[in-house]
Each structure stands twice: as C-alpha cells, then as structure tokens.
Amino acid sequence: MELDFACRYPFTEEGKQAIIENNIQVNDEIAERAVQRVLNAMNWRDKEGRGIYDPTYAHLSDKLTEIGSYGAARMMLSHLRNRYLTNSFAVGEAKRAYAFLKGLEEGHPDIKRLQEEFGVVPEKREGKDTLPLATYVKFAPRSVDYRLVNRNVKGGRVEIRKKGAGVSKREDLRLLQEAIKIRVGHLGTIKNAPEIIRKHSERLMKSMPKVAPSKMSFEKGDNPPCIEKLLEAARLHQNLGHQGRWSLAVYLINKGVPYEKILGIFSNFPDYDERIASYQIKHAINRNYTMPACSMMLSYGLCVANCKVKSPLGWDEWKKRKRS
C-alpha cells in the first residue's frame, strides 16, 4: 500500500523513504526507465489516463524500479542542467500525478496526504472551501480563471471552487498539481555524477526529439513588455497558460512572423506538442484573429507595464513617435 503511494507520487517524503528503506541503487534497468520517464514527461498526454503506469498490480521489483527511476531521472537532470528538459519533466510529472488524483473521490486519503505534505490543505470558512491567500497566489495557475481579482477573498483566505457549472477542473487538485510541478522542478546541483548517470544522461540527450527548441532572434525592446515577458517564458522554457500562448501566437502572426518561426518559438515550452501547437497556430492564422487590446491583456493578467499604448501592436508606432 505504502509502496503504491510512493510509486504514484515518488516526489513525496514517502518516495524518499521508499528509496532509503529498500536501499534502491541506480542500475542500468532503473536508469533506462529514468530515461524513458523523462522522455514520457516530454510527450505526456492527459487523455483518458492513457500512458500512465499504474503500479497497483505490479510486481514488487517493478515498483522499486519505478520509484528509483524518479530519483535517477532527477540525478540525470541535475547533471545535465538543461532547463528545457527539467521544466518538461516537472510539467509531465505533475500532470501524471493529477491524472491519478482526478480519479479519486473527494477526501480520499491519498489526496489528504499530498495536500498536507505540500501545505495546500483546504479549510472551511463560512461554509466555503478556502486556502490561505499566500498559498493560493503561489500555486494558482497563471490563467484568467484563477486571477485573484475575480475571486472570493476575505480574512486572508481565498475560496476554491468545486468542479461544476463554469468550473472545468477540481481546483484543489489543480493547485496541488502546480505545487508538485514547482517541487519537481527544483533540482539540487550534482558535481560528480556517478558513471551510470553520466552514461544514461548522454543516451537521454541522444534520444531527444530531433527538433531542437528554436533560439529567439528578437532584440530586447523589439516588442512591448507584455510580449517580452511571454518570450522570456519561452526562452526559460517555462510553462504558459492558454491566454498567454494564444496572445503570443496572435501577436507574432499579426507582426508577420512566419508560421515555422512561431512553431519554433513554441517548441521552447516544456509541454510542447508539435501536432497541437501546429494546429493551434494554423487555426489562428486561418481565422485571422486580431490582437487582444491592452485592456484584455490586463484582464488576462498578462500586462506588466504601463506603456501608454492601446494594443501591443501599437508598440512600434509608439516607439517611432517617441524617437521623433
């Protein structure tokens, strides 16, 4: 039972304990599984739970390999210090955990244990499920639906809603997913990685998809601050919410950036999927979407400066006027 928990959620204290108590050492089998684990994270899909390894009926040795592979993957990523891979791994592992959690009924012991470990325990206040304000802003996804300004806030507590009318996901679990992503993405440094980790890290790099993330060719100041921030997220291989990606795509399309280059920029996002990104960009091109005005960027939470333009596309004009 405990091993199953560690297997599903290896980033927990339970996962650490399982490695210590079972004296799990990295061997070729574990390292091989770790490589696969990182690659899976990069291509992971949350569709009907497909692609998730459920350890419930697995043999004990498979369970230990599964737990060990998480630790080995972290060692490889610490050794490689590749931000793109690390962020992709963090996003993938968090989504994997969410896929397990979303199938559980409310109040399930696994959910409670994780909420306690990550300090994301909802408490009732005036009949509402709430989280502390600081916890909420730390772990709320950067999306318009989670913007604090549109939330019920009182006495340092923020209401979190149940899945239902207008709420597509269980918000308590969505915040937990974000907390998991942050923890998984924090890696220590490893100076002298063991030979087996070095060997398999090399193999991991060779197994990477052939399309390497595109380098940005924009100069600082070419774009308004909100777009710079979105491009910076791509540069740092950080995940962006739907509105962020959509606004970036529409901006680049309206600026006349070619499809291939936009796709290249999107390939920097840690959960990049060429098929989906390609469809979305082509769809935006075909529909000829107009750029959201600054007021809309504000409501999305994407505006980061008061740059005195009405639309991000007005930036060039404003710069010209300022120069003259």
Binding site: A140, V144, L148, V149, N150, A165, G301
Partner: peptide, 25 residues
C-alpha cells in the same frame, strides 16, 4: 508574479464582473 496578483487585486486590475456569474446550471 505572486506579488503582482496582490497589487492587481488592490488596484482592481483585470476585474471582470461577468466572472461573478456562473454559467446556467
């Protein structure tokens, strides 16, 4: 980013009153 959420809250930045209403049940 988290502090921006707090600053935006007190400034009412991005406040969308339509979000106060849910879709019909």
């Amino acid at each position: 980013d988290e502090r921006r959420e707090l600053a935006d809250y007190v400034g009412g930045v991005g406040l969308n009153y339509e979000k106060f209403f849910e879709a019909p049940d």
